[in-house]
C-alpha cells in the first residue's frame, strides 16, 4: 500500500527526515513512533502531498506521491496533527463540504454523511458549531472527515493527542474497528495504544528508521527481555553469589525489602526461561521463596532503548 524509498526532507540546513525507507502492506495497522521532532509529521505531510520530499520517492497504492499527487490524495484519508477545522461551520455542514470536495455528491454523499457521523458518534452534535465542541468531539469530526470518502489508506497524525483517558479509549476502539477494513498509518506517543492496536511498528528518531517490525518481535528482540524477579528470605550477598552460577544468568541485582525479605532481579539471556531452574535451586538450598515472575518487556522499553540519547 505504501512504499517509501530513501525519502528525505531538508528544511534549509536542518535534515528533518534522512533517507527513510519502509513498506506498509494492504490491511496493516502501522504505528509510527518517535520522540518529538523525530520527523513523524514531516513524513506524513510528504505522504499526503502537503510537503514535497527533498529527495527519494514514495508510492501509495502504486501511485507516485509527487507526480500523481491528486490521485494519491483521493485515496488517502488524512487527519492532520491538532485537527484544524473551520470552527465557524456546523458539524454536518463541514462534513458535507469536505465530502463534496473529495468528490462525493447526491445520495452517495448523504448516505456517507449518515454513516460517518454514526461511526464517529457525531449524530447528536451534527447541528452544533465546531467552535462549541470539546477537543474530543473535534478529534472525531477530524476522523469523520478523513473517513468520508471511503479512503483505502488512513493517515492519522496523533489521533489521541490531548484527549482524556475515556476519549482515548473511544478513539482507540474506533481505530481497531476501522483497522478491520482499512490500511492505517498512525503516529503517536502513546505506546500502550500501539501495542493494543497495531500489527506493525515503525520507530524513527532523528529522521532515521530505527526499527520496523511487529510489536511482539520488537519486544522479544529486546536486550532486557529476559528479566526475572524473585523474592527470597535470604541475605542479599548470598543470593548475589549463588544465583549467577546458573547457566544463562548474566547479572543479578538485589534490593532488601522492609519485612526482611530480599528482592532479586535476575537478568538472563534473551529467549530463555530460567524460572524453573531458579525455583529448583531455591528448593534445593531450602530458601523460603514467595514470588517468582518474569517481567515482560513492553514497547515503552523498546522505544526508550532505541531512541535514548545517552
Amino acid at each position: 500500500m505504501i512504499e517509501i524509498v530513501n525519502l528525505s526532507k531538508r528544511y534549509g540546513r536542518h535534515l528533518a527526515v534522512d533517507e527513510i525507507s519502509f513498506e506498509v502492506q494492504r490491511g496493516e495497522v502501522v504505528g509510527f513512533l518517535g520522540p518529538n521532532g523525530a520527523g513523524k509529521t514531516t513524513t506524513l505531510r510528504m505522504l499526503t502531498g502537503y510537503l514535497p520530499p527533498s529527495s527519494g520517492a514514495a508510492r501509495i497504492a502504486g501511485l507516485d506521491i509527487f507526480r500523481e499527487s491528486l490521485e494519491v490524495r483521493k485515496k488517502i484519508g488524512y487527519m492532520p496533527e491538532n485537527v484544524p477545522l473551520y470552527i465557524e461551520m456546523r458539524v454536518k455542514e463541514y462534513l458535507r463540504f469536505r465530502g463534496a470536495l473529495k468528490g462525493l455528491s447526491g445520495s452517495k454523499l448523504r448516505t456517507r454523511l449518515g454513516e460517518v457521523m454514526e461511526t464517529c458518534g457525531l449524530t447528536h452534535v451534527r447541528r452544533k458549531m465546531i467552535k462549541t465542541l470539546s477537543k474530543g468531539y473535534r478529534q472525531r469530526v477530524g476522523l469523520a472527515d478523513a473517513l468520508i470518502h471511503e479512503p483505502e489508506l488512513l493517515i492519522l497524525d496523533e489521533p489521541t493527542n490531548g484527549l482524556d483517558p475515556n476519549q482515548i479509549r473511544a478513539i482507540r476502539r474506533l481505530i481497531q474497528d476501522l483497522g478491520q477494513e482499512h490500511t492505517i498509518l498512525l503516529s503517536t506517543h502513546i505506546l500502550s495504544e500501539v501495542e493494543m492496536t497495531c500489527n506493525k511498528v515503525v520507530i524513527i528518531d532523528e529522521g532515521r528508521v530505527k526499527a520496523a517490525d511487529s510489536p511482539l518481535n520488537l519486544i522479544s528482540s529486546m536486550r532486557r527481555a529476559g528479566r526475572v524477579t524473585m523474592e527470597l528470605k535470604i541475605a542479599p550477598e548470598v543470593g548475589e553469589t549463588v544465583l549467577p552460577t546458573l547457566d544463562n544468568v548474566t547479572k543479578v541485582t538485589s534490593e532488601p525489602l522492609q519485612d526482611g525479605w530480599t528482592r532479586f532481579s535476575v537478568f538472563v539471556a534473551p529467549n530463555t526461561d530460567t524460572r524453573i531452574r531458579l525455583a529448583a535451586l531455591a528448593a534445593e538450598k531450602g530458601w523460603p521463596l514467595r514470588s517468582l515472575a518474569r517481567r515482560n518487556a513492553n514497547l515503552e522499553e523498546v522505544f526508550v532503548e532505541l531512541t535514548r540519547k545517552d
Binding site: T48, G49, L70, P80, P84, Y86, L101
Partner: peptide, 14 residues
Amino acid sequence: RAGTLEGLLTAPVK
C-alpha cells in the same frame, strides 16, 4: 494560521 490550509491542500483540489 488555523492550519486548515493543510486540510484544504491535502484534499484532491488544485
